[in-house]
Simulated scan of single mutants.
Amino acid sequence: MLDKKGKLQYRLDVTGMTSNSFDKTDFNKILLVASVVKYLISDKTTVSAKYTYQRFSCAMMSPIVMTPVGFGTLP
Rank of each mutant, 00 (worst) to 15 (best):
M1E: 08
D3M: 00
D3K: 03
D3N: 12
K5H: 06
K5Y: 05
K7F: 03
L8G: 01
Y10L: 04
R11S: 10
R11L: 07
R11A: 13
R11D: 09
L12Q: 05
L12V: 13
D13F: 11
V14M: 06
T15N: 12
M17Q: 10
M17A: 09
M17S: 08
M17F: 10
T18E: 09
T18P: 01
T18W: 04
S19G: 13
S19H: 05
N20D: 11
N20A: 09
N20Y: 07
S21Y: 07
S21R: 06
F22T: 11
F22L: 12
F22K: 13
D23F: 00
D23Y: 02
D23M: 03
D23L: 10
K24M: 06
K24C: 02
K24N: 10
K24A: 13
K24T: 13
T25V: 02
D26Y: 04
D26P: 00
N28E: 11
I30S: 08
L31T: 07
L31A: 13
L31W: 11
V33S: 07
V33D: 03
A34T: 12
A34I: 05
S35Y: 04
S35Q: 13
S35F: 06
V36P: 04
V37G: 05
K38V: 02
K38Q: 15
Y39A: 01
I41C: 02
I41H: 09
S42K: 01
S42H: 01
S42M: 02
K44S: 13
K44Q: 12
K44N: 14
K44W: 06
K44G: 02
K44I: 03
T45W: 14
S48N: 10
S48D: 14
S48M: 11
A49Y: 14
A49I: 14
A49P: 00
K50W: 08
K50E: 15
Y51I: 09
T52A: 10
Y53P: 03
Q54F: 11
R55G: 11
R55T: 07
R55V: 06
R55P: 00
F56R: 14
S57D: 15
S57G: 13
A59H: 14
A59T: 09
M60C: 09
M60N: 15
M60G: 10
S62H: 07
S62L: 05
S62F: 12
P63K: 01
I64C: 06
V65I: 15
M66L: 14
M66Q: 12
M66H: 11
M66P: 03
T67R: 05
T67Q: 01
T67L: 03
P68R: 06
P68M: 05
V69W: 11
V69I: 13
G70S: 00
G70T: 00
G70Q: 00
F71V: 12
F71E: 06
G72P: 00
G72F: 03
G72D: 12
G72E: 08
G72A: 13
G72Y: 02
G72C: 04
L74K: 09
P75Q: 08
P75G: 04
P75L: 05
P75T: 05
